[in-house]
Amino acid sequence: MANIDTKEYSPESPSVKSRLTWLWSEYSVIIAFVIIYIGASAMNPRFLDINNQLNILMQVSIIGIIALGMTVVMLSGGIDLSVGSVLALAGVISVLALNASGSILVGVFTALLVGSFAGFLNGLMVAKGRIASFIATLGMMAGARSIALYIAEGGSVSGEVSGFTAIANNNLWIFDFPVIIFFVMAVLIYVLMHKTRFGRYVYALGSNEKAAMLSAIRVDRIKIGVYTLIGTLVGIAAVIETSRLNSISSSSSGSQYELDAIAAVIIGGTRMTGGRGKIIGTIFGILILGILNNMMNLMNVSPHLQGFVKGLIIIIAVVFQKRE
C-alpha cells in the first residue's frame, strides 16, 4: 500500500518550506495586519495614541458587525448585496417605531425584526426560489432602499426619545458600546460557526452543496438561516448607526456598506465560492481596512483617493490568495 502513504499528509516530516506555506496560507491576514500596523506606527507617531486606536475600533464596529454576517453568507457560497439598504430601511422604520411608542426597547426590537425579515426574504429567494444570491440580494438592495426613501420621503428621520443616543455614545471603561457589541457578536458568531452544527453545515454547504444534501443536511433551511442571521446583524448595525447621530438618512445611510463588508471578508481570506474561511480572518480584515482609512486621514490623503487605495488592497489580497 505504498501509494496510499505517499498521497497522505505526514506530519512527521514537514519541510521548512511547506511549513512556511502553511503558516502563510492560514495566517496571512494576521501577518499582513502586523506589517501594516508596524508600518503605520512608523509613519505617524499619532497613530499609536490610545484615543486614535480606540477611534479606529469605533469606526470599524458597524461594518464589522455586518462583515461577521457577510463571512457566514460567503462561507455558504452566497453573497448579500442588500446590507446597506436594509440598514437604512431598518433604521428608518425603527426610528418611526421609537418615536411612536416612546420606548427604546420597541425601537431596537423593530430594527432587529425588519433586518431579519429582509434577510429571511433573501434566504427564501435563494433557497426556495433558486435565484442566484447575487441577483436576489441585488433586488433586495434596490427594493429596501426604495421603501426607506418612500417612508422617509427622501430625507432623514430623527429620534425624539431621550436616552436612545446612549446606545452608541456611552462607554464602558475606555470602550465605546459599539465596540463592545462588535466583539460580543464576534465571539457569538465564532462559537456558532465552530461549535454548533449550524456552522458545520454552513461550511459543508459552501464546500459541496450536493454532497451536503446527500449527507442528509437540510440545505434549504441552512441557507434561509444564513441570510436571516446576516439580516439580524444588519438590524443591530442599524440601531448603532441611528443611535450615533440620533438620526438616519434614507438616501445616504448604509450606502456602500456592502462593499466594505465584502472587502473585509475577502481580505480576511474567505474564499469567494464558499467552504473555506474564518471569522478571525474577517476581524483582522476589518481592522486592516480601519487602519488604512485612519492612516490616510492622518496623512491628509484626499478622501477622493481613499477608495483607490482600498480597491488596490482588495485586489492585492485576492491575488495572494489565488496562489494556493
Partner: peptide, 24 residues
Amino acid sequence: PKDRKENAIIKDLSVIHNMSLSSM
C-alpha cells in the same frame, strides 16, 4: 453515492468532520 469527489466528500472539512456530518 458514486463519484465520491462530487457527491460524497466535503473536501474543505477535516476527516473527522466528514465522518460526523450526518449524525451531529
